[in-house]
Nucleic acid binder design. Structure first.
Lengths: 408, 408
DNA sequence: CAAGTTAGTTTATCGCTTGAACTATATAAG
DNA sequence: CTTATATAGTTCAAGCGATAAACTAACTTG
């Protein structure tokens, strides 16, 4: 059902609305249009008025606020019509940026993007974080972030806030990692604020797959609705519906790695049985393909697997095909539950796509015919930096949706 | 992630906000509090001001509008404090109501509830709608609805609008049934408006399981987040998250009947393989239990099954236990995808609960340990009339969220 | 019956959008 | 070079809804 949306929804649902809410809404409306405009094309106040439906007077007043807050910048004159006074172009202030950070199993990373999403600086440091105390990892990351922030500053970009992506479940709205199996963290409260001392927008925490999903949303033509499936040691997922990340009441929605794909299957690290991860996770594929893991890095093992596939190893081919079929079952079930219409494969699923793709589509056609068209099963276009870009992008997105947070 | 909600969201997302939106928001806020108040307990303006955070002046003005619109009514004096001037109690106008209607395989039904959800009149007419043209069914229903409307009118209840529930997929926001397998309808546009000529709120169309889910939400203590699973000829579902029906981008979310529970399973009417419905649908259970369907009504066959279960028939017991285990697998997968935390079983699942319950919980513990606590697997408390009550309730809900639609 | 207490209304003020009038700056025509 | 026309952006009065404070209303207590 498409019930009439509530007329206004103040920041806290169920709170009184007043004129400040109207202003916040319209600030976001105008700023949102600027963000959506193609790079290099600068909208004018008059065009914003036409696009948003606001009057020129309101747009002028709103733009003034956004200029004062340092979010927008005027950029010369814009000639598009033949006659009449030229308008003044507006763009996101290129001297403001946000930091994306990532903690993963074998590295930490930090990077700064401008508000328009361009990567300005990025640094990755290899570090074995497996079973490392969270405090030690955070200290190393704080140091890395500090350096990256200085580098951005030297390039004239001021960091307004940051986002951190971790490979684990995150309690929504808090800085707590409920569980990160591959890091060995359980109910770990992270002091994210110290990564970026005294930034106006603070630092937020994200699940890695969710962040990567948002990066695909922002940087790729996958549409407004898709399920991102991240293939790492674990199998994670990020569900994007109507251009919004759907996290569910506890923040655990989209955990596609633990959909049951075989009731007779193997036990899973989550305590369940026959989860997708037990067939399509990296360890499962390596093991089924007969690839050695011990004493080798994941990158090396993956290279071995690709070699075996290229050489036509039956074990390797079967392992990957099985993973593809299991993905098809999982996607079939997910499409029923959440009306998923498109799938984006990331991590090792993107790497193995040429072997996975066929079995996945066959399996999908068998278990949920008509639910997704084959061309809606795609691979990631953002790649490695997805989690980092997504974490940074989420901070920008939050700013765009609530620009008043940066006002004096 | 729990990003900051947009400050205001005018009726059309991306539309300018103005002070009328603030008013709409606050009308809904005040009215929502009145609706939430326990039956028989009448809030006063002063209490509403305290509860909503609005000032007394604003509440007075808003209540005046709601009285003028005929949505609220003043009801004597309310003494709760010891001292001071007594407040004037407010309640939903009992002379206004909405109609819920239902088309199902072997009957049509119509009933009127007051705005507070009490059933005033209800009439059910047996009718075999299987493979009946939609126009003929709608004509019969229009006649039934007209009579029920008159009966309600005679009792002093004026019908403001209506909701119709059908056992099929409904295109959100339209009056089109995409597919209703058990009625034999495909892409059928229904002229719902003629069911209730000239009502101010019109007539909306709902999926049966979704409507029933909303009825459970309104009339039962199941909480704000649950998956309702309806056991009928088909297996349907309604996903309630944060007290909202979650329908997904195409309106097909919660279609739990076609989650894959056995990749080696039987073909399904949806074209898929091993769907929940192939194990736990009514026909599947009857067939596995060796119950005759031909020449008998569904009610009779169900009575036969209950008899067989009571008599300890191994085939019947096994059939129902298998259905329970399949439900466990489906719930496990659904809990991963949409972070479902509770399940409400309706239709034949409620009837068979004493045999289903154990196998379902065992299966759930095997496939998704810790995802749902056992006490969060519940049975429907609304029963038969769920779809009808839910359809009516949805209309009330839409009115509460946008009361200005009833203003002059 | 006066004092105290709570309910609800009245009034002045503020902030934000709106629409119309106005100013500013360009191109095109004479 | 001047004038007409077209478009961009600002200014200003008006309207509306929320707020806060003052005020009126109605009841209890002593």
């Amino acid at each position: 059902m498409a019930s009439t949306a509530p007329a206004t929804a103040p920041s806290d649902a169920g709170a009184p609305g007043n004129m400040a809410d109207v202003r916040r809404n319209n600030l976001a409306l105008v700023l949102g249009r600027v963000v959506q405009s193609p790079a290099g094309f600068h909208l004018t106040r008059a065009q914003l008025a036409a696009a948003t439906g606001l009057t020129k007077a309101s747009v002028s007043s709103i733009v003034l606020d956004l200029l004062d807050a340092g979010i927008l910048r005027e950029v010369g004159l814009s000639r598009q019509g033949e006659r009449g006074r030229p308008g003044v172009g507006l763009e996101l202030n290129p001297s403001r940026g946000v930091m994306g950070m990532e903690i993963n199993v074998d590295y930490i990373a930090a990077g700064v993007t401008s508000l328009s999403g361009e990567l300005v600086v990025k640094e990755v440091r290899e570090r074995d974080n497996r079973d490392s105390a969270s405090g030690a990892v955070m200290s190393a990351l704080a140091e890395l972030a500090s350096g990256v922030r200085l580098a951005a500053s030297a390039l004239g970009v001021d960091v307004l806030g940051g986002g951190l992506a971790v490979p684990g479940l995150v309690e929504p709205g808090s800085s707590t990692v409920t569980v990160a199996p591959n890091l060995g963290w359980v109910d770990t409260k992270l002091d994210v604020a110290r990564l970026l001392p005294s930034v106006p927008l603070g630092v937020s925490l994200f699940n890695e797959a969710n962040a990567a999903a948002l990066a695909e949303l922002a940087h790729s033509p996958h549409g407004r609705d898709f399920l991102y499936i991240s293939g790492e040691v674990g199998v994670g997922g990020g569900l994007v519906l109507n251009s919004e990340l759907f996290t569910g009441p506890e923040g655990n929605a989209g955990e596609v790695g633990h959909i049951v794909v075989d009731p007779e299957g193997a036990p899973c690290s989550c305590g369940g049985t026959g989860c997708l991860e037990t067939v399509a996770g990296q360890d499962a594929i390596f093991s089924a393909a007969g690839i050695t893991v011990k004493g080798r890095t994941r990158t090396e093992s993956m290279a071995d697997l690709l070699g075996a596939l290229a050489a036509g190893s039956p074990a390797a081919l079967t392992a990957v095909q099985q993973a593809g079929r299991a993905l098809g079952v999982a996607v079939a079930s997910a499409s029923r539950v959440a009306n998923v219409r498109a799938v984006v494969l990331g991590g090792h699923f993107a790497v193995l796509d040429q072997w996975l793709h066929g079995p996945l589509l066959e399996s999908l056609a068998k278990y949920a015919p008509g639910a997704l068209s084959p061309e809606h099963v795609m691979t990631s276009t953002v790649g490695d930096a997805g989690a980092l870009l997504g974490a940074a992008g989420s901070v920008v997105r939050a700013l765009v949706e609530a620009p008043h947070r940066l006002q004096a």
